[in-house]
Write a protein that binds this DNA or RNA. Structure first.
Length: 570
DNA sequence: GCCGTTTTCGGCCCGACTGTTTTCAGTCG
């Protein structure tokens, strides 16, 4: 049975090949919309299609459903194979290079016979790219620069974690707020929507004089180089290599610009379609009526209100069902930073943390937490100085002493106990019973494929002493995707046993991700937010986990951290 | 290829910017 990801990949490729072949634009877009819809669907779309129910999903019609059935039953799609014969697949990567696109990629093929990246490299080295009609020196230089990267044109190349991009964007936003004449500055785009990875950052600025903003960018110590732009938008590159787009509008239409720049693109398309049905043309410049009068909005909520919609949290603007929900005024109350009372998965220098428990507890108190759970590693994880049972008991004594001395916060005796290869835990039950709370995590066998990962996680979920599963999938961005978990099965058992599933806020983990978390919530499970901090400066990673939870649609009642642990079982 | 507060056919979001242009197509977000 093909996974949603495999179906989505097939549709994406088919759309790309059709686009190169010059197919009608909206047919191409239909495949891309279908791919996105399948990819984010909570259950198996192949099973739905075999039951004739995939057409219940928006953007999936009879034709796409038939192709999903074909893929499930034969392992391939005839239309995709035909498209591959007609158009070399390597051109897809060419078309992804900046400055190229489907038209120019095809022109390169026609003029030079180049069908893949390697062929393009050879053509560039031979100085022949400029022979292609429509390719001037600027485009040749742009393409040549990208070819130095071995991953040039690969899908998803150069996506960076939310946790690495967000601080850079916020630092620049803070600088811009101090510029004379600047009234408001917000981080927008996929960062504002809380996407786990982004390929650039967007900042919007309310100011009457765009030139002052441009000058400030030019002078900023955070900026390595300017990356072009005009009066309304400028792009810069930070020293770590993040591209940040800065858009400027006068304060009276800041709401229109913020809404536009936040996206998602699909959400905005739906919004503009809705506007058209009401006789309004919508853009970042405002709402234009049929007689040409333009209405502008200083605040974003006014834009939605002008279309008869309640304001929609940015994390939900992904073209699921949010417009219908907002039209009915049923927008959910998502979990917020102020709801968070504490967390139970941070480390100390008893294992691989950088500071002692008292320092961590004081830092947690400074964030307004009422409790903090020290969850150091268990004995099997030797490289982290995992605790033996003897050291666990000494740590408990130290925590008792700390609680007697520290004020304003309660320190909890927790552990991040390893789930061993056979699904058993790294401590025996007697010892586990002595902890306030037990987080069980996988740290080995994370490249396994198939069902064994699910079985190990399920064994831990069923364990009577386990309160939460840490970073369930075990992904590490840029290194491994982690396990292919049957998250529905896990979440159902987690709901039945009262076991929490963690959203780990480490920038390279963000695990569960928002799609898995959304599915887990639908199956009735509750979530635990963790920074997995190894020092005080990591505690803000919890804010990243919070964004992921909001993207999953989680409200305060879905998140354990909004309550004291004493309430969790109830 | 999808879809319906104009529709089962004929539409399908909107604008900025760039480069190669002799008036605009292609790309990008």
């Amino acid at each position: 049975m093909p996974t949603n990801g495999e179906i989505a990949d097939a549709f994406t490729l088919l759309g790309d090949l059709l686009e190169l072949d010059g197919a009608v634009r909206h047919r191409v877009l239909a495949y891309r919309r279908g791919a996105a819809r399948v990819r984010s669907a909570p259950g198996s779309v192949a099973e739905m299609a075999l039951a004739g129910r995939a057409t219940d999903l928006p953007d999936i019609g009879a034709t796409l459903q038939a192709k999903i059935v074909e893929l499930a039953q034969t392992g391939s799609i005839a239309a995709l194979e035909k498209a591959r014969e007609r158009t070399p697949e390597g051109l897809v990567r060419l078309a992804r290079l900046e400055g190229l696109g489907p038209k120019r990629a095809m022109a390169v093929w026609t003029a030079l016979g180049v069908t893949d990246i390697e062929g393009l490299r050879a053509a560039v080295e031979a100085g022949r790219l400029g022979e292609v009609p429509g390719m001037g020196p600027a485009t040749v230089a742009q393409v040549t620069a990208q070819l130095a990267d071995p991953a040039a044109g690969e899908a998803g190349a150069e996506r960076v974690s939310l946790g690495l991009a967000l601080p850079q964007a916020e630092d620049l936003a803070r600088e811009l707020r101090a510029v004379p004449g600047v009234r408001r500055v917000e981080v927008a785009g996929s960062l504002r929507r809380g996407r786990e990875t982004v390929h650039d950052a967007d900042i919007v600025v309310a100011a009457d004089d765009p030139a002052a903003v441009a000058a400030a960018l030019e002078a900023s110590p955070l900026v390595a180089m300017s990356a072009g732009g005009g009066d309304q938008r400028r792009a810069v590159m930070t020293h770590p290599g993040l591209r940040i787009e800065v858009a400027v509008a006068p304060p009276e239409r800041f709401g229109n610009l913020l809404q536009h720049a936040t996206g998602s693109a699909r959400h905005n398309v739906r919004l503009r379609e809705l506007a058209l049905r009401r006789g309004l043309s919508m853009s970042e410049h405002g709402l234009t009526a049929g007689d040409g009068t333009v209405t502008v909005h200083a605040d974003e909520a006014e834009v939605y209100a002008a279309l008869g919609l309640a304001w929609i949290p940015p994390e939900l603007r992904e073209d699921r069902d949010e417009l219908a929900v907002a039209a009915e005024g049923r927008v959910p109350r998502l979990v917020e930073r102020a709801d968070i009372l504490g967390e139970i998965h941070v480390h100390s220098d008893w294992s691989d943390g950088r500071v002692d428990m008292a320092t961590m507890a004081a830092a947690a108190r400074d964030r307004g937490y009422r409790y903090i759970g020290i969850a150091d590693h268990s004995q099997s994880l030797a490289m982290t100085r995992g605790l033996t049972p003897d050291r666990v008991k000494r740590q408990w004594e130290a925590i008792d002493a700390l609680n007697a001395q520290i004020e304003g916060i309660t320190v909890l005796k927790c552990t991040e106990v390893d789930i061993l290869a056979d699904g058993r835990l790294d401590f025996d039950d007697d010892l586990l019973a002595g902890f306030d709370l037990v987080v069980a995590s996988l740290h080995s066998g994370l490249r396994a494929t198939g069902a064994e990962g699910t079985a190990r996680v399920l064994a831990a979920v069923e364990h009577p002493h386990v309160d939460a599963i840490g970073h369930p999938r075990g992904r590490m961005m840029g290194r491994r995707d982690g396990l292919q978990l049957d998250i529905e099965a896990i979440a159902e058992r987690a709901a039945a046993t009262g076991t929490l599933l963690e959203i780990n806020g480490q920038p390279r983990r963000l695990d569960l991700d928002s799609d898995l978390a959304r599915t887990a919530l639908a199956a009735g499970a509750r979530l635990l937010l963790s920074s997995d901090a190894h020092g005080p400066e990591d505690l803000w990673f919890l804010d990243l986990a919070l964004r992921v939870a909001r993207r999953a649609g989680a409200g305060p009642e879905d998140i354990a951290n909004t309550r004291p642990p004493a309430d969790w079982r109830a």
